[in-house]
């Protein structure tokens, strides 16, 4: 199967804040190289501060590396400008976050419509309603996020992530803010949608049990890929 994500010597350094204001360079990701095939599911595992979220941000083009490159669907992400990367994300990627990241001003349906509308779709409402139906939230379509439970909010986020039929789904600790039972339901739903749409899944977590649901695990320690 062809690689859909390629990480080549990906490194990220930041200046650590210091008392004298000078700042010391701190490497938070060290030459990470790996590939993810289309349809594959990959769990990025690691303790807090190991660089998981940094790696996810770089793979999705949310941040720029200090060195190295990422090929997304064979396109060099960092040869594009900020807007080019946004466009590519809109076309290829879906996102699920620990803190749901729904827009508080929009109701559930409007939140799901958002990526479609940004992409210029004309049937956004119908597709979004359908997607909400898939996650079992048709009844709550017109509720604002603050009136939904954590599990419901994450289901809206899943509907939003899958509504554009993305090739890659980036998930950052999707169960981190949920209790165990709800978290399990969410994971089940996510993997089911993933299988149904043949989406490539890149999941960041510190939860070994959750990682086992994915076909492959990549372990990070202090910014280095160790497995």
């Amino acid at each position: 199967m062809a690689a859909i994500v390629q990480s080549i010597d990906l490194s990220k350094q930041v200046l650590s804040p210091s008392i004298d204001g000078q700042g010391q360079p701190l490497t938070i990701l060290h030459e990470a190289s790996f590939t993810v095939d289309a349809g594959e599911s990959l769990a990025i595992l690691g303790a807090s501060g190991s660089g998981k979220s940094t790696l996810l941000g770089l793979l999705a083009g949310l941040d720029v590396p200090s060195s190295g490159s990422v090929l997304l669907n064979s396109i060099d992400l960092f040869s594009l400008d900020e807007d080019g990367r946004a466009k590519l994300r809109g076309e290829l990627a879906g996102f699920v976050f620990q803190s749901f990241q729904l827009l508080p001003a929009l109701n559930a349906l409007e939140n799901v419509m958002l990526p479609l509308e940004l992409g210029g779709a004309t049937d956004a409402r119908e597709r979004a309603a359908e997607s909400l139906c898939q996650v079992g939230l048709s009844e709550r379509a017109h509720h604002l996020p603050k009136h939904l439970s954590g599990g419901e909010q994450q289901r809206v986020a899943l509907a939003r992530a899958f509504v554009t039929r993305p090739k890659i789904l980036f998930a950052d600790e999707p169960t981190g803010n949920l209790d165990a039972a709800t978290g399990a339901q969410i994971i089940e739903l996510m993997l089911e949608l993933n299988r149904a749409q043949g989406t490539t899944l890149i999941l960041v977590t510190h939860d070994e049990a959750l990682a086992k649901h994915c076909g492959r695990q990549l372990r990070l320690e202090a910014g280095r890929v160790v497995q």
């Binding site: 999705a60 949310l62 946004a86 827009l103 940004l118």
Partner: peptide
């Protein structure tokens, strides 16, 4: 800020 970041994440360009 969060709204904008999310919009950018979902593929909105600066001009949008």
């Amino acid at each position: 800020l969060d709204t904008c970041a999310m919009l950018r994440c979902l593929g909105a360009q600066q001009e949008q």
